[in-house]
Measured scan of single mutants.
Amino acid sequence: NKFNKELQWATWEIFNLPNLNEEQVKAFIDSLRDDPSQSANLLAEAKKLNDAQA
């Protein structure tokens, strides 16, 4: 299933962003679980936040 692979990839990527704190990671993962179809958008937002906090 396409969404499942995207969800797994986005989850792994978010867990490995070095500049997000635990609460931010949890919030993004919760959002992914709530709406897996938004995984690409949520990953992009997480990466933006990660870069901003570098």
Rank of each mutant, 00 (worst) to 15 (best):
L20V: 01
E13W: 10
F28D: 00
E6P: 02
E45S: 08
N41I: 10
W9F: 10
T11S: 09
A10P: 03
E22L: 13
Q24I: 03
N4D: 15
D34M: 12
Q53V: 06
L17G: 00
W12D: 15
I14G: 02
Q8Y: 13
A40G: 06
L43Y: 04
A52I: 10
E13S: 03
K26Q: 07
P18K: 09
N50P: 01
P36S: 03
T11D: 05
L17Y: 03
Q24M: 04
S37D: 06
N41V: 08
E22I: 13
L49K: 06
W9Q: 14
A10K: 02
S39L: 05
R33P: 01
N21F: 07
A52F: 13
N50R: 01
I14Q: 02
N41G: 09
L49S: 03
I29H: 04
V25I: 09
N41A: 11
N21T: 12
K48W: 09
L42G: 01
L32G: 01
E13P: 03
A44G: 07
K48H: 07
Q24E: 04
E45W: 05
N41W: 09
A46H: 01
N19W: 14
P36L: 05
E13D: 03
D30S: 11
D51I: 07
L20P: 00
V25K: 14
E22K: 12
N19T: 03
E13A: 07
N16F: 04
P36A: 04
T11I: 15
D35G: 04
K5G: 09
A46D: 00
F3S: 15
I14D: 03
E13G: 03
L7W: 07
E6V: 07
N41P: 15
F28E: 00
F15A: 15
N50W: 01
T11M: 15
A10D: 03
Q24P: 00
W12M: 14
F15P: 02
D51K: 12
L42N: 01
A27P: 01
A10F: 15
L17F: 04
I14L: 07
N1W: 00
D30M: 09
S31K: 07
P36Q: 04
N1S: 04
S39E: 03
W12N: 15
F28G: 00
L32Y: 02
L42K: 05
N4A: 08
E45Y: 07
K26E: 10
L20W: 01
D51P: 01
N50A: 04
E6S: 04
L17E: 00
Q24S: 02
V25M: 06
W12L: 13
E23A: 12
A52Q: 12
I14H: 01
L20E: 00
L7I: 11
E45M: 08
F3G: 14
I29M: 07
L32T: 02
A52E: 12
L42R: 05
S31N: 11
L7R: 01
F15G: 14
A40Q: 12
K26L: 12
Q24Y: 02
P18S: 07
L42W: 05
F15Y: 15
S31V: 10
Q38I: 06
E23V: 06
K48A: 09
E6L: 13
V25L: 06
S39Y: 13
A10M: 05
D34L: 13
T11Y: 14
F15R: 14
A46W: 01
A44P: 02
Q53S: 05
K2P: 13
N21E: 07
A54N: 09
N16G: 11
A52N: 08
F28T: 01
N4E: 15
N1I: 04
Q53E: 04
N50G: 02
I29W: 04
W12H: 13
E22A: 13
L20R: 00
